[in-house]
């Protein structure tokens, strides 16, 4: 984190200071994001404590295969993103660019798999309306959380993909190094989205199985 920013923007006069401020600011935002998802996890675990069997019954309906593939995809994408940032620091811009496109592709892959899973879930009547396929009413609440959490996570992922496309365009235009601040912030945001997915995956696919 002791690197300096590529391009200075107002009101900074030092690249090192600007990088420090940028990293600090994005972490404040990430702390705030933690609380956003934390609220949902708090609600989930509180309910699960009260309705353990209903929630575990719901968890048995989630598709572990899709979930595991998606987790592997995101972990790999985080790996690629991490390499991208480090490659840029040692001036291997070409490697950085490849890694950014790989990250992007894996993210898109995640959404694709998620889409397939959603189709299957709908086919199995797991949308928690009155046609819901499950005996225990608490399973419906479980699937309320399932759809809400995965959907909100996917929205975050989509935003991350937007930032990655921006980085990709910068890399094409050979201005990636000048925008190393953006690489750092996008990378931190992307990693956080992946950390949240790890928790979502464990909560919805593993804990109740």
């Amino acid at each position: 984190m002791s690197q300096a920013s590529g391009v200075l923007h107002e009101p900074f006069t030092s690249g090192v200071r600007q990088r420090e401020a940028t990293i600090f600011a994005i972490w404040i935002f990430l702390a705030s994001e933690l609380l956003l998802f934390g609220g949902m996890f708090f609600a989930f675990y509180t309910y699960r404590h009260a309705h353990t069997s209903g929630f575990d019954g719901g968890a048995r309906h989630t598709n572990l295969l899709f979930g595991a593939i998606n987790t592997a995809l995101l972990l790999t994408s985080s790996f690629a993103m991490s390499v991208a940032g480090r490659a840029l620091e040692v001036k291997r811009a070409a490697l950085a660019e490849v890694c950014i496109w790989v990250t992007l592709a894996l993210g898109v892959g995640f959404l694709g798999v998620k889409g397939l899973e959603y189709v299957q879930d709908l086919h199995e009547h797991l949308w928690p309306n009155t046609r819901f396929d499950g005996a225990d009413p608490a399973s419906r609440i479980f699937f309320g959380f399932y759809w809400t959490m995965t959907f909100i996570h996917s929205c975050h992922l989509l935003i991350g993909l937007g930032f990655l496309i921006r980085l990709g365009i910068m890399a094409r235009a050979r201005v990636l190094e000048a925008n190393s601040d953006s690489v750092e912030t996008t990378s931190l945001y992307w990693h956080l989205v992946d950390v949240i997915w790890i928790m979502v995956f464990t909560t919805l696919y593993l804990v109740g199985k």
């Binding site: 609600a43 309306n129 009413p137 608490a138 309320g144 759809w147 809400t148």
Partner: peptide, 19 residues
């Protein structure tokens, strides 16, 4: 969560189901 329940029918705060 309020929008999820009201608009999408996710029964998160629905006391009839145990919410």
């Amino acid at each position: 969560l309020l929008v999820a329940e009201r608009f999408f029918g996710m029964p998160i705060f629905d006391a009839r189901l145990g919410g």
